[in-house]
Design a protein around this nucleic acid. Sequence first.
DNA 1: GCATCGTCCATTTTT
DNA 2: TGGACGATGC
Length: 712
Amino acid sequence: MSHPLTEKLNPEQAAAVELPAEHALILAGAGSGKTRVLTTRIAWLLSTGQITPSGLMAVTFTNKSAKEMLSRITSMLPLNPRGLWVGTFHGLCNRMLRLHHRDAGLPEAFAILDTQEQLAAIKRVLKLLSLDDDKYPPRTVQQYINGHKENGRRAGDVDAWDDYSRHLRIAYQEYEKQCNREGVADFSELLLRCYELLSHNAAIRAHYQQRFAHILVDEFQDTNRLQYAWLRLLAGEQGAIFAVGDDDQSIYAFRGANVGNMQDFQRDYAVKHVIRLEQNYRSHGNILDAANAVIANNKQRLGKQLWTDASTGEPIRVFEGASDFEESQFIVEEAQTLIREGMPPSDVAILYRSNAQSRIIEHALFSAGVPYRVYGGLRFFERQEIKHALAYLRLIANPSDDNALLRVINFPTRGIGARSVEGVQEKARLEGSTLWQAACGVGGRSAASIGKFVHMIEAMRNQADGLPMTEIVDMMLDLSGLLEHYKNEKDGEERVANLEELINAAATFSVEEDQNPLIAFLSHASLEAGDHQAGAHEEALQLMTVHAAKGLEFKAVFLSGLEEGLFPHDNSANDPQGIEEERRLMYVAITRARERLYLTLAQSRMLHGQTRYGVASRFMDEIPQSLLKFLNRGYAPSSYSAGTAYNAAPAPKLNKSTPEHGLGIGTKVEHHKFGRGIVTDHEGGATGNVQVNFEQHGSKWLAVAYAKLTVL
DNA sequence: GCATCGTCCATTTTT
DNA sequence: TGGACGATGC
């Protein structure tokens, strides 16, 4: 007897959907239908009457997946998505903080600082404290602050043991004060503040604990400690947490994600229900076998093995270019062939480990006239003109927002120079007030221009009251002179168009009845910076980093730059944890492909202005040779890295000539002890030394006369 | 206030 | 190599 909702699911999926109202951990492999399970679970809970829409919460990391989840739920059940608490961690915390802003100690119209704005705010703090930029780089301080917040620590909770750490703590402390004075919250603040709201306020905590009988979490492996603590607080004694995740796809440790939360969750709640979703509906057999083989090398795993009903499919194709140029060339030609044979360009992805690799590929694509789209560019709400417009809107909502004030006090220019601004800042510092308060009472030389600015903002505030959102934006663009400014600017057409698009965005933005539209719109702008660029679904090749590809799938995938140093990246090479994360990244990359996978690498690559000679990635060797098909001239089956590669196409030389001993850069050699390697540098002629990058033993300098190197 | 020059740096990134 | 950012000069 199965429920209609679960009829089309496999046994594990169905079992997960129909679990009792108790804590559960679903280990969902790549392509195993985890979103489907999550949304069907929600629909099942609702349609069987176990819960009402207001009794559940579903948390995701990105707006995209939150939207996806909502739309899938509403397609299964007739529901008003408004009442559902489905959203991102940040979005849901924001929602709670707005509802209880007084208890949370925040002004109603608190602004949300994005990463850039937080950095700007930190720079101001450092300046105020006269902390040296070189010794205390703003970015480091930012990481320090966010790191502590993500572990639930306020400045007062932080340890300091020497001058340096004491200064960092002071900076954190001052930053906290400044944010409170200005009524702003950064991203991690949303979470921490919400956590504190729940932990300090028993009534509010009890309310939500009673309300949310079911809490469903997507991408659980990406949660940080604070998010986990927040979930625990919300669940309380009665709430059931349904956590879905894949430890093998944990690739965000560098930004605080703690895979350990999965084990902690099992332990903390003595989770009885652990279900593995291992049937993959995405990729052909060979691709899955490769992914399984690679990830099997990781020690720290909860354990999973993907399988499929699909056929073995094609072999995985390997191409090794003599240079990065040749590699790109190959990718472009091959992609063109695929397209010619009828594959939709948007179903072909070119993936790389780091953004810098995209340039040469883009160049090749551009030269060949192949349309492509790079993910990860500037997003709508991050554009300069939009940021300026938003700053005005923020001042309307909350004039204490110093960040916003500084951004636009003299933009468009209105005769308030750096000196005048410093004057206001000094006054504010002395009075312990916000810039706005200081600006209101400014006298002296700059009084006139600053007074005009103050009056302008006040006029906007007065006019905005009661107006619909579009008219507020329209009025602001007019009174501020922003639109005028960009209209007069040469090449300003696109910016003008973007500002007009902002009016559109305001028009299509809908708010719930009890919300202040301006505040809601500003939250929306901060929390959903907007899709990367227009034209997401254009018929074009898709270029992106492996990180950005997580969650996506393509018929054909080119995975480029498979060299030691790049993938796995040098910076992760030294610690086992780092290598395991890189390997998970490799696993994510492989499992993006449905039917065809290309692995490409280059013997030489331009990096930081210098030619580097690399060795094939260790991850290549972890894939069984039987799954691979080498497209270049024949490779020996055991190891095809440097040593066994073809020796046609001499590697491009630096400005060094080949020395007498013949061991020029790029020569493949073998050493009796270190094995195969490739010459990467030399000095001192025939009696001198050569630098060899060995496959197994890394880079070494050797004396030519003694080393007994065999040229391969 | 803006342009230009030099210096420094160089995974991955959503909210 | 090239971009981003800060200091310098008009």
